[in-house]
Amino acid sequence: MNMTRRQMLVLLPAAAVAWESLLAGTPESSPNYEQTQHWWGMLIDIPKCIGCGNCVRACQSENDVPDGYFRTWVERYHVTDTNLANPEVISPDGGKHGFPAAVEDSGKYFFVPKMCNHCADSPCTQVCPVGATFVGPDGVVLVDQKYCLGCAYCVQACPYGCRYIHPTKRVADKCTLCYHRITKGLTTACCEACPTGARQLVDLKNPKDPIHAFLKTHAVQVLKPQMATGAKAFYNELDGSVR
């Protein structure tokens, strides 16, 4: 116990500034946004994706994502009929600048946009030692960057590779589902920039959301269902070779 006391005394001045803001109460919340009235997710319609990279670029400029790190990215799969289980996948710079032209052959090509699945039973928030990352009341997985230690345990725990340690802030960073936008009634930056509607923000608690009709008539899948994460990024016509 001597140890803690000493540790704390040493750390006091360093953290004093941070505490000021940490201890502060609730700042002005967005008007008319009721957290408990929403349960957010994303619909990704694979046959509509043209691999233009607009979503990756939009995400990077909306959220100041540092170069070489990705809150969302696009993969291009190439599955040949002789080797269904072993697809050839590329994602040059996350698909930010599009993809090299592909030529017709016996295989099939398709694009898979990836992002945080905003899992309901998220393995990343489960392992956070201090409660710096969490599933909000509206189903969005967020990081409290003023509280995060930067231990990277959550990065290890995410089965989808959606998290990274921010190179200058030195804390975990990830897709916020554009929380600053959806709480103001806007859609996410990636959805705004998607030309074909391959990505659509969905609110599962809103009975008028078109997702309900869509789910009734389409074969929708999540990534790595064996992980049982309660993922809320729903993929339409997801190929079995996608991991």
Partner: peptide, 23 residues
């Protein structure tokens, strides 16, 4: 030394997360 913010490690004692093995 590996933590991004070692000065915050005291939080582990303040608000240990029950479901975390590291806490």
């Amino acid at each position: 030394l590996h933590l991004g913010h070692p000065e915050r490690s005291y939080e582990m004692y303040l608000t240990p997360h029950r479901t975390s093995a590291m806490a």
